[in-house]
């Protein structure tokens, strides 16, 4: 499996920020009379960590939902890997290498940690169902091969001890980690993380930051994340996009965004005169 080898031998220079991977161009999204996104444009470059921040209701999650095909914007175009995409379904985005996690955990509660991560790998599994029913020869080999890959993810995320535990029984922080594992199992090119650190304590946040940075550095995965913890955002991201009321306020490196007067006013509520 060439795909497996690729992940096992990380390139040393994957951290070089490359070309534009995803370009969002003048996207507008309405829900009835509500403008969730208003003429938003930004770019995600290869191998970078892009943070999308903004107050509640700014349209951050809607933006992620647009990127992975869950919402269909009324105006604007999305260009992914040089191809402008037409209206598409989420599973097509997954096939193109876009994986994501959710703000409120969306794990498969009835399944074990291992099964959840194995499910994330299903696009790489090609045996027909009758071979799976016989569970013999190629089907069993495929199952074991992907089990090995998933065990590597389990090692990476340090969740060996909960491998066979049904995820419904796990504490919140671990569930978040399993969900990250499920997204990683697909070996995504672009990983969308919706508030990966929401509701975590300091230690869990530190772990999660470490995982995100490691994923970015070792696998060269491009990451777009939404986060409210400004300390985390300013520390780990290469670039920050700020949204407010569906409009883009700022876009740039963390330091310039931090001192942008529009951002400061949106966050701190400085009075306009």
């Amino acid at each position: 499996m060439a795909a497996l080898d690729q992940a096992e031998t990380p390139d040393a220079d994957t951290r070089e920020i490359g070309d534009v991977l995803l370009r969002v161009d003048r996207i507008s999204l309405y829900f009835g009379g509500v403008r969730a996104l208003n003429n938003i444009s930004f770019e995600v470059r290869e191998h970078e960590i892009l943070a999308i921040i903004g107050p509640n209701g700014a349209g951050k999650s809607s933006m992620l939902n647009v990127i992975n095909g869950f919402y269909h914007p009324q105006e604007g175009t999305i260009t992914y890997r040089g191809k402008t995409r037409s209206r598409m379904r989420p599973y097509q985005a997954a096939a193109q290498g876009i994986a994501r996690t959710f703000q409120n955990i969306a794990l498969f509660k009835g399944m074990s940690t291992l099964d959840n991560i194995m499910t994330g790998r299903l696009l790489k599994m090609h045996q027909p169902f009758w071979m799976q029913a016989l569970y013999w020869g190629p089907a069993q080999r495929e199952e074991i091969e992907h089990r090995k890959f998933c065990e590597e993810i389990i090692d990476f995320l340090e969740i060996q001890h909960i491998r066979k535990t049904p995820v419904g029984r796990l504490p919140y922080g671990l569930q978040k980690r399993v969900e990250l594992g499920r997204a990683l199992a697909a070996q995504p090119t672009l990983l969308l993380l919706d508030e990966p650190m929401a509701g975590m304590n300091v230690e869990e946040k530190e772990d999660m930051c470490r995982f995100i940075l490691d994923i970015n550095e070792e696998f060269g995965t491009t990451i777009a994340l939404i986060e409210h913890d400004m300390g985390v955002v300013m520390d780990i991201s290469d670039r920050v996009v700020v949204l407010d009321y569906g409009r883009k306020l700022a876009d740039g490196p963390p330091d310039s965004v931090r001192s942008d007067p529009a951002v400061v006013s949106a966050y701190l509520g400085v009075g306009h005169d």
């Binding site: 599973y91 498969f108 499910t119 089907a139």
Partner: peptide, 29 residues
Amino acid sequence: LAKNMVRSSIGRQWMAIRDMDIAAEIIGI
């Protein structure tokens, strides 16, 4: 045969649809 199916990829797809159909679609089902 049924037991083999439910412990393989096809069974995991069924359970994914059962447990959380939106997340299932987003990982490619």
